[in-house]
Amino acid sequence: MTDSLASHPDRLFPADPGTRKIARELYADVEHFPILSPHGHVPAEWIADDVPFPDPTALLVTPDHYVTRLIHASGVPLGELGFGEQGPEASLEGWRRFAEAWPLFDGTASGYWLRSEFEHVFALPAEMVESFGPENADAVYGAIAAKLAEPDFRPRKLFEDFNIEVLATTDDPLDSLEAHERLAKDETFRGRVVPTFRPDAYINVAHPEWAERVERLTAEASGGVAGFAGYLRALENRRRYFVEHGAVSADHGVRTPLTLRLEPGEAEAL
């Protein structure tokens, strides 16, 4: 008998019975294929270093901006979610704030995904997951922490167990891609981790740090070319560097897909 939505085999299929039947058949044809992930936010360093994840908060809360943004929007300071201060006590307190905010995740993709992780990855009992909140926050934290201490929960073992063939990370244009280089040269690692060019920080002119970031970009990558031409040259050079290190795509987070072609003089003035 199915205990929860997170463990129901049809949980992501359409509600219409006829369409759901087709979805089941299509899924059955591909469910054992390896994963080719074109977009993700897993740092390449996690896989290259292959060190144990420090604690549940550092893995599931702090690095996930969808999680922290929702909790922070409810009035919880980021400092109470494991940011800044380090150590076991701070991590546990951050997890408790997360547990208090758990009802906020009802009906969200993040909530579904977290429940699925709790049950499928960490094998927590369904009743523990369904009752997750302030009352059992410490127990859930302890159960996940115990799993993270096991060899089977090291990054590379999870990469293998999830049957990932290719994983694309999301990277700043000025990233050295040193971790990607190490993985590419590591004969013991059979997967493929490729960078993705994410230039938002150097394109969003409304950001208060945009000018400072562009100055750094052109200083490091323009090849001595000044002005707007140097800005374009720097982006081109870094994009080429990414391609040389295995990148096959760029990721642009824009609110409106609108571009304007300016005269060289106008662009230079900006």
Score class of each variant (00 low, 15 high):
176 S>D: 15
58 A>I: 02
178 E>I: 02
155 P>H: 07
162 F>K: 00
133 G>I: 04
238 R>A: 03
71 I>T: 07
101 A>C: 13
230 G>M: 06
96 R>P: 09
139 A>W: 04
203 I>A: 12
207 H>T: 02
249 S>R: 13
133 G>C: 07
270 L>P: 00
192 R>Y: 06
125 P>M: 06
199 P>G: 02
209 E>Y: 04
138 D>R: 13
256 T>S: 13
184 A>K: 05
167 L>D: 02
63 P>L: 07
193 V>W: 01
125 P>T: 06
189 F>M: 06
211 A>L: 06
23 A>R: 03
155 P>W: 03
89 E>H: 09
142 G>E: 13
20 R>Q: 14
8 H>Y: 14
152 D>K: 12
136 N>F: 10
144 I>W: 02
183 L>P: 01
268 E>M: 02
76 V>I: 14
93 E>D: 14
238 R>W: 04
261 R>H: 12
172 D>N: 12
153 F>N: 08
46 W>H: 13
55 D>A: 07
137 A>M: 11
118 F>A: 13
234 A>H: 01
74 S>C: 08
159 F>W: 09
41 H>G: 10
92 L>S: 05
191 G>K: 02
240 R>D: 15
190 R>V: 04
85 E>D: 13
216 R>C: 03
184 A>T: 03
61 V>S: 00
264 P>N: 08
133 G>P: 10
73 A>P: 07
267 A>V: 05
25 E>N: 12
39 H>P: 09
248 V>M: 10
147 K>V: 02
69 R>C: 00
143 A>T: 11
180 H>N: 03
148 L>K: 08
59 L>Y: 00
12 L>A: 12
99 A>C: 12
268 E>I: 02
153 F>M: 11
176 S>W: 01
37 S>Q: 12
72 H>E: 14
210 W>N: 05
92 L>M: 14
127 E>P: 04
103 P>N: 11
60 L>Q: 09
